[in-house]
């Protein structure tokens, strides 16, 4: 069962405005006219026919996954030395989960290279 709510990752509970907004954004990013037509068809299906919208909502998995948070702010890094390993990753690049650290009986590691993220950089932020 091809479901427009699932195909375009729409939450049926968010209502017609949210559906329109999301599909509009997708239509603007569409690669070709055919894809844009499919998006328009889905929009018509979901917004112009409430009964069909409800039926599609019934047959769409409800959104019960945990909410996606903001991505982490990556600290600035010094340029890698020329003789660095090809893969470019070192042990310090791995973040251990708190449960692992606790099991190992070690505190969270401190990083000599740790610098504040760009948005927290006092120089870039300028005077308060």
């Amino acid at each position: 069962m091809d479901n427009p709510f699932e195909r375009y990752d729409l939450d049926p509970r968010e209502g017609v405005s949210a559906i329109t907004e999301r599909l509009k954004a997708l239509a603007e990013e569409a690669r070709d006219e055919a894809e844009r037509a499919r998006i328009r068809e889905a929009w018509e299906e979901l917004t112009l026919h409430p009964a069909r919208r409800l039926r599609a909502a019934l047959f769409a998995h409800p959104e019960t996954r945990g909410p996606l948070g903001a991505p982490p702010s990556f600290p600035r890094r010094r340029p890698a030395p020329l003789d660095a390993p090809a893969i470019g990753l070192e042990l310090r690049d791995l973040a251990a989960r708190p449960s692992v650290l606790e099991a190992l009986g070690v505190a969270a590691p401190t990083d000599d290279d740790d610098v504040p993220p760009l948005e927290d950089d006092p120089v870039l932020r300028g005077p308060p």
Binding site: R65, G66, P67, L68, G69, A70, P72, F74, P75, A95, A96, R97, P98, A108, D111, D114
Partner: peptide, 17 residues
Amino acid sequence: MPWRAADETLLQRLEDE
């Protein structure tokens, strides 16, 4: 870099998938 609650949620989503 600390392990944040959002990271834990993301990991759980990936595990669930």
